[in-house]
Design a binder for these strands. Structure first.
Lengths: 101, 101
DNA sequence: TGGTTATATCGTAATATTACGATATAAGAT
DNA sequence: ATCTTATATCGTAATATTACGATATAACCA
């Protein structure tokens, strides 16, 4: 690894947001606190399998977590990591706003 | 287009940050206000051509701009777009912090 | 003019992303 | 036990990303 660890993590989380479907998912999970996979599929103009892939990507990034509930899957924000990400965003914003006025 | 325009733009800018090299470039441009391409190449553990590609990606995202200065290229933050991006980040953070406490 | 320097672009290979339909899996219902 | 439902995963195709060395370009210098 040649880049700072925190930059690598920040980049990874940014990549998790680098698709409007995933942004939509995150926002929905934020509003509803938790969500069944099927609801997210209905919300999005994408097939079930594609939505499942995006959910997997988000889960692997650590920004959300999922648990099986009978035949359904319930997803929610991973608060610990999301907080960390928000903190990193804040730090980034601060350094940007230093110079962008 | 099926996703909200602002989500698409936010996703695109997040994608621009989705690599540690590009984060590094943005941070450097922030600190030094402006930068010659060659300085950025020295900063990064990547070849000249790869750095040039990352610069192109950032320029195409609209987060930075470049101008030719004789035989050199000088880059700086595109303040207008960066401000917009920071604003979007802020909005995102706010909605996240609603639910992540 | 000819050589040097700085940067961008080309060609290319390896890998990742994105999408879909089809299929597997596993729980719940009849 | 079988059927249905919800979700995940597989297979696959199209495209994008990332990296490099090699080459093109264009300005500067001698």
């Amino acid at each position: 690894m040649d880049f700072p660890k925190t930059d690598i993590q920040f980049a990874e989380w940014c990549k998790a947001l680098a698709h409007p479907a995933r942004i939509s998912i995150i926002k929905t999970l934020m509003n509803r606190r938790e969500c069944i996979c099927g609801e997210l599929v209905l919300d999005l103009p994408l097939s079930q399998s594609t939505v499942s892939q995006h959910l997997k990507a988000l889960k692997e990034s650590g920004l959300i977590q999922g648990e099986v509930e009978g035949t359904k899957s319930k997803y929610c924000i991973n608060k610990k990591n999301m907080k960390l990400f928000m903190k990193m965003m804040g730090t980034f914003q601060e350094s940007m706003n230093q110079g962008c006025n």
